[in-house]
Computed example of a mutant assay.
Amino acid sequence: MTDSLPAGRPADGGEPPGGLPPTGSAPDAPAPAVGRGGRRRDQAIALGWLVAIWVLLWGDLSWGNVLAGLVLGVAVLLFFPLPPVTFGGRLRPGALLVLAVTFAGELVTASLHVAAVAVRPGYRPRGAVIAVPLRVRTDLNLALTAEVISLVPGTLILEVDRDRGVLYVHVLDVRGPEDLTAGRERTLAVERRIVRAVGSPAEVRQLDFEPADRRDHP
């Protein structure tokens, strides 16, 4: 079972009619200049995320895994440089705690659900691919939201449309349209918690808007 692409998306991959971004998103605005100190800070943050992802993938917090993650992270940043992603947000300890606690709870509940599906005799779960347009279309928000979604059992990011700010999410055990709606709402809830934890005040205000694709094509 595969959910349809966002309404209004032409087959040739062009922009949907009337799909203007919400006020303040400015996805095509030029990135601000970043000094040497800013680049080093951004690289250090990226290296920290790469090490954390490496440890999470192995599921074992040890000095060996941390050291291997550091070596691989440095190699990735040196040999496969990505476009600079600047951090212009604000760290909010309370919202960060909510994000961490909620993420831990979702890991437990999703793991139990996937385990129950796996051991259920004769049951063949149906999957679906849903398109979720985000409200904050920065590279950092796309990356963080996609990573958190992929780490939760039962959901996986298949594709990221960077230009339109859309995540294509594969969800497990879909029984009806209500499960598709719930999958979209979970993804947007993850985005909301991430933006409230590390986003700028302007990005937090964008959470009050519906994604452009959903406003223009209800």
Rank of each mutant, 00 (worst) to 15 (best):
E159F: 09
E106T: 05
D28S: 13
D213P: 03
R214A: 08
P27G: 08
A100C: 03
L172I: 15
P153N: 11
V190I: 15
V74H: 04
I53A: 12
Y168K: 07
W49Y: 10
L207N: 05
P10Y: 05
E185Q: 15
D12S: 07
Y123Q: 04
R214V: 14
L96P: 04
R214G: 01
E178C: 03
A33M: 10
H113Y: 11
L5S: 05
R90V: 10
L107R: 03
D163A: 15
G48K: 01
A31K: 14
P81K: 08
G176H: 04
V132G: 07
S111R: 05
R41D: 07
V129T: 14
R120E: 14
L180R: 11
V66E: 00
R164P: 00
V117R: 09
L142E: 02
M1H: 08
A189C: 02
P84Q: 11
G38F: 02
R40I: 14
V101P: 01
P30S: 04
I53W: 06
P21L: 03
T102A: 12
L188V: 02
T138L: 06
G176P: 13
A212C: 07
L61Q: 01
A33T: 10
G35K: 06
P125S: 15
L72H: 08
A31I: 03
P30R: 09
E15N: 11
V129G: 09
V132A: 05
V136R: 07
R9M: 14
P6F: 01
A131E: 08
A182R: 14
I130Q: 10
T102W: 14
D60Y: 10
E178S: 13
R175N: 12
R215A: 13
R214W: 13
L57Q: 13
P83S: 15
L20W: 14
R164L: 09
L97H: 01
Y123V: 05
H170N: 12
V101N: 03
T109M: 00
D208C: 00
A52Q: 06
V152K: 00
S4W: 08
A197S: 15
D179Y: 09
G19Q: 03
T86Y: 11
G199L: 06
V51L: 05
P32A: 13
V98M: 04
R137A: 11
F87K: 00
A110F: 00
G14L: 08
Y123E: 10
T145W: 00
I130S: 06
R193K: 13
V171K: 02
A46Y: 01
E185T: 11
S200E: 06
P81I: 02
P27Q: 06
P22D: 10
P6S: 06
